[in-house]
Amino acid sequence: MSQQKVAIVGAGPAGLQAAATLVSLGVSVEIFERNGSPGGHLKQWHALFPHFQNATHALNPLLNGVKGITMHLGSKVSEISHNGNTWRLLSDDGLKYESDAVLLTTGFNLFDASRKEEYGYGVYPGVVTSAQLEEMFNGQRPWPFDKSLAAPKIGFVHCVGSRDVKCGNRFCSKVCCVTAVKQAIEIRKRFSDSAVTCFYMDLRMYGLGFEELYHEAQVNHQVQFIRGRLSEASPAVSGKIQVKAEDTLMGRPLKLTLDMLVLMVGMEPAVKLTAQNNHLALGKPGFGDGFMADRELNTPEYLQVTPGLFVAGACKGPASLPDTIQDAKAVSVDVYNFLKTKS
């Protein structure tokens, strides 16, 4: 019996982990990645919650795990089709690949903050996204304010593009709350005289160690938590940003001048799967298009009627890195079992 083959679409943490697991189970794997390098969003990240683990320390084992596996970089899979027991992948650059199963690990995109114009992203240079802040921590991006500034004032806005019907995203992106707390602490560590304020709707500290991190931010780092949404950001003198918000606990409006405003952008699916005549197309999601549902939960028809197609990681819904890796391992076992029953 020849070795069975699995095609993995997406070389983020989920794809890399799944590849490593499947190879260890004796399955042949090829990975397709539309970007020029593997690692997904993780490779731009600086440190991870809740223990400030260096992101490269998390990424390196994943990359080491796929050594020797064929990886098609810069190859964007546009459609997959199913013929008998064989799956066919077709990529934009004309690459064709046949396999016994397909695993989609297409992950997420960050919400485009310019869609919320009132926050001034793309208008005022001091308004940045959480991902850009990680790049600043990494030294890959300059700070928008003078680093020699004695006491920079920095604000975080939670739920940008999440829990927002107007953006078509009803869901909570799950990880932004704790990311904001982590980043707030990092800012406080880096700029000892800085003042950091978080504007939140609800703080969701669901994971082990998250609540402790929140406690640490409040007690040790004097991060101010204000329950309220920002109304608008407007320019103030010398490149500063004035924000207005409602402090819902005080029941009073509030204004604050900041040197930098960080928008905690939420997650959106990176790929939309649509069933066409005889194949599945991987396209750009439109307004309100949700994540690919989990196989065990609200399984969409195309996943039910097409055995051999699997989905893992954040393309099923917002997930933290540990969640993603656990899921990739679990789904890999599903794939393995499926291949076993087929042979």
Partner: peptide, 22 residues
């Protein structure tokens, strides 16, 4: 969900204590 956005942008809220979420 009483996020307070309505009160933060409120035109009347600039002059009075108008807060819709309340």
């Amino acid at each position: 969900i009483a996020c307070g956005r309505c009160a933060a942008v409120c035109t009347a809220g600039y002059f009075t204590g108008m807060q819709f979420y309340r």
